[in-house]
């Protein structure tokens, strides 16, 4: 089962992260961190707990503003046009962002509608039929969610919920995927399906940045980055800079 993926992203853009520093709750996390991802590229964020993998993802998503430095898309700083950047990003956080009261399908459709990615499809989904969204149909098929589509998210297991959240990312059509521990709770078949989706996405010119500490295959030519390798230079000055 492969997803037929046309070249989705005709104008290739480069994501650059320049000298960002972040302190959270007054605690210095990392400083002077720089990296870049080319169109079709992949970046793996590795390292121990508390090293700042999730923080890097949140900064790149535009959810968290760094103390210094900036993130740029095609040379333009994302903070200058957050709405445009939001349209490029599909973010999978620690939490699945599913509403228990909605079905798996409705969850994905609602999220895509709010992100401006699809018609609401309310009437279709109310009748329990697959909606109009072909990309979502393919994502559900890929992650073997079709039989679960009409079950309330409250009934799903942790791994099933993770798959629904992943389907939302895969169907988003966004060029930049930001995945925070995407494999948590997934079985081997689902991990393989995710790897296929990532490969197709990259082939179409999309980018993937994933924080993961298992051997998720992001495909050929992926780079690796450990935010823990960018400490604030001196603990003492870090204290002052984080304070001031």
């Amino acid at each position: 089962m492969t997803v037929a993926a046309p070249p989705l992203f005709p104008d290739p853009a480069r994501l650059t992260v320049t000298d960002i520093a972040v302190a959270r709750g007054g605690r210095p996390v990392f400083a002077d961190l720089s990296c870049a991802v080319e169109p079709g590229g992949a970046l793996r964020l590795a390292g121990p707990n508390g090293g700042g993998k999730s923080t890097v993802l949140r900064v790149i998503a535009g959810l968290l503003r760094p103390l210094t430095g900036f993130v740029a898309w095609d040379g333009a700083t994302i903070a200058d046009d957050p709405a445009a950047h939001a349209q490029r990003v599909a973010y999978l956080g620690h939490a699945d962002a599913l509403k228990s009261a909605l079905t798996a399908r409705e969850n994905a459709e609602t999220a895509l509608a709010i992100a401006g990615r699809a018609p609401t499809g309310q009437s279709a989904s109310e009748r329990g039929r697959p909606g109009e969204n072909a990309a979502l149909d393919r994502a559900f098929a890929l992650l073997d969610l079709e039989r679960l589509a009409d079950l309330p998210a409250a009934w799903l297991s942790a791994g099933q919920r993770r798959r629904v959240a992943l389907a939302r990312v895969i169907a988003s059509g966004c060029p930049l995927w930001l995945l925070d521990e995407p494999t948590v709770g997934l079985d081997t078949a689902s991990v393989a399906a995710l790897e296929r989706a990532i490969a197709d996405h990259r082939q179409a010119g999309g980018m993937v940045i994933a924080a993961t500490h298992i051997a998720l295959d992001l495909g050929p030519g992926d780079e690796s980055l450990d935010p823990g390798a960018f400490p604030w230079r001196h603990a003492e000055s870090a204290v002052d800079e984080a304070l001031v």
Binding site: G26, R27, P28, A235, E236, A238, V239, A242, L243
Partner: peptide, 13 residues
């Protein structure tokens, strides 16, 4: 606040 910083910094050495 500074005490909190120093304790955190000491813990992450």
């Amino acid at each position: 606040r500074r005490l909190r910083q120093l304790r955190l910094a000491a813990a992450s050495e």
